[in-house]
Every structure is written in C-alpha cells, then in structure tokens.
Nucleic acid binder design. Structure first.
Ligand SMILES: [Mn+2]
Ligand SMILES: [Mn+2]
Ligand SMILES: [Zn+2]
Ligand SMILES: [Zn+2]
Lengths: 145, 145
DNA sequence: AACATAGTTTAGAATTATTCTAAATCAAAT
DNA sequence: ATTTGATTTAGAATAATTCTAAACTATGTT
C-alpha cells in the first residue's frame, strides 16, 4: 500500500494534535511505512523504506518522526538486548518473541487481561505503568509468520 | 565484604572451568563486586567499584570478565530501554522493576513456576528458552528496599 | 500581501556504550 | 627453561542515537 488509509490518517492527526505537534508529510510517510509492514523495523530500515517513497527525507528526520509517533502514543519502541531499537505500531497489549536464528521479532497476542494481571506480582509499594514481556528462542520450521 | 565466600569461590571456579575458562584474580574480583551489592550495576559502575579494590584493572578487562561470567551462566545481562547494560547475579527466576524517577532497577520475586507458565501463551511453533519480564513505573515513598 | 513566530527538516558533528586490535603478561604443560 | 595458549591492557574503532545550527514551512497577525 502506498498511502495512509483515511482512518489511520485521522488517528495520526488527532494523536499529533493532542500532543501539540503538526501533521507533516514526513510523519505521515513514516507512519505509513510502519503500518504497511509490521515487522518491527529498526530506524535504519524505516529510513530505507521511507526514502524509497520520499527520496529527500533524512535519517535525522526519520528519528524525529519516530520520536513524535512514540510521544503521541501511536507507536511503541521495542528494545531487545543491545540491538537497535525497533518500532511497533501494534497498540493492543501483546508480548514479543525474538528468534535467535533469524533475529526477527514477532508479536505474540496474549489472553485478555493477562498483562494487567502480571503487575499483581509487584509488592504494594511498586506501581507500574508499563509491562514488557519478551521471549527468546526459535521458531519451528514451517510457519514463518 | 572484601572477598569471595568459599561457596561462591567454588561456584565460580566450577562454572568457569565447565566453560573452559580460567579462574583469575580479576574475574574473582568482578564477581565479588557483583555479589557484594546487588543493585544491577552497569559496566562502568562495576569498573569503579572493582578499581577501588584492584587499582590496575582496566575497563576492557571488566567487560571481558563480565562477558566470561555471563557466558558461564553466573550472571545475567539486564537491558532496559537503551540504557547501558546492567549485570545481575540473581540466578533464581525473577522479574525486574525499573523506577522512572531514580533509574534504579529492582529484582521482583515471582511465584514458583510463573516464568515457566508464561511461555504457554506462545503458539505451538514457537519454542522459548528465555523469558524476560520488566515493569516500569515508580516506587512509593517509604521503602527504598 | 508582508511580516512575525514557532515548529520542522536537514546535513553533519558529537556522544557514548561497547567491541576490536595488538602487544604485554601470565599460567599451565611439556 | 621453553612453548603454548589464555588473559589483561591501553587505546583505537564502531555504530546507534542525539545534538547543533541553519534552512525551510506553516500558521497567525497586522
Ligand atoms: Mn537478534
Ligand atoms: Mn532509567
Ligand atoms: Zn510488537
Ligand atoms: Zn535481577
């Protein structure tokens, strides 16, 4: 897909607006790149993909746009070990699976309410506003999804 | 504590030996520093602490020793966001809590078997050999643990 | 329309945690 | 004693990200 669906365009404008930021062609394009192929790309990969559609964009702008998207809540950063940060536009609660063989990162849907239940292991004086669950291992041959 | 307990010294030698690596004064000292104050120090903090007891040690050696300890399974790396890697000698299954205010990282004990149960959310073609659970938030005043 | 203002984009420099390199040191084995 | 291979060390190199400062763009005001 080459462009942002009307629904996503609206969500983007709303979210940016709500965070006091402008909607720009670069931000739209970066967001579109993230929605288009949801394989947790690094900034570098986002740069390559975006540049192919908007050849004048710079790496600095890609970082700026990604930061804007994270700040306004449309995208989450995913950090695994010391590897470059990856970006995930999946807003529903989910875990991540990191395949040691391919290096790829997959979304893992979790049962309704599980993420919220996990914070119950915290002692009373801890209050968590985010929970991250990451698995590492390998994917059996056959299904690559 | 200034030196390694006999128990820990034995565990260290065994683990290094099993991984085909030698027991050295530097490795003993770094391990002792990690056991001594279990607050998930960064390599830099380990360097500072170790240097105060063994002034000739170098940063490169600290990284080398930490890597040896990780390789032989006595220490785990803890990565949180893009911050410097931290080192944790707690071998029992546990989660981590990262306080946004102080930046400190705490161990959170989890119910027996919970970490193992978590992998049940994975589809059949995924096989995980490690599970990481990280909370982020803040610690109520009163207990600093 | 002209202007002022503030946000954004951009190229390139700076930062920084970590890894690499190559030489010196050390410790076991012969 | 000599050889061998592992370890330590200082410093250089790497690489993801952030910073800087100038150009550009959009928006609101006279
Ligand atoms: Mn990987
Ligand atoms: Mn922090
Ligand atoms: Zn994801
Ligand atoms: Zn820990």
């Amino acid at each position: 897909m080459k462009t942002l669906k009307q629904m996503d365009r609206g969500a983007l404008s709303d979210a940016l607006d709500h965070a006091g930021q402008r909607t720009t062609p670069q931000r739209e394009m970066v967001f579109s790149v993230l929605l288009d192929e949801r394989n947790h790309p690094t900034a570098d990969e986002v740069y390559t993909r975006t540049k192919s559609r908007m050849p004048t964009i710079s790496m600095a702008t890609v970082y700026n746009c990604l930061e804007a998207l994270v700040t306004c809540g449309l995208v989450k950063q995913v950090n695994i070990e010391r590897e470059p940060t990856r970006y995930c536009p999946n807003l529903s609660p989910h875990a991540h699976f990191h395949c040691r063989e391919t290096g790829r990162v997959y979304d893992v849907p979790v049962p309704e309410g599980m993420m919220k239940d996990l914070v119950k292991v915290l002692p009373g004086n801890y209050s968590a506003d985010s929970v991250e669950l990451v698995f590492r291992g390998h994917l059996e041959k056959g299904k690559t999804k």
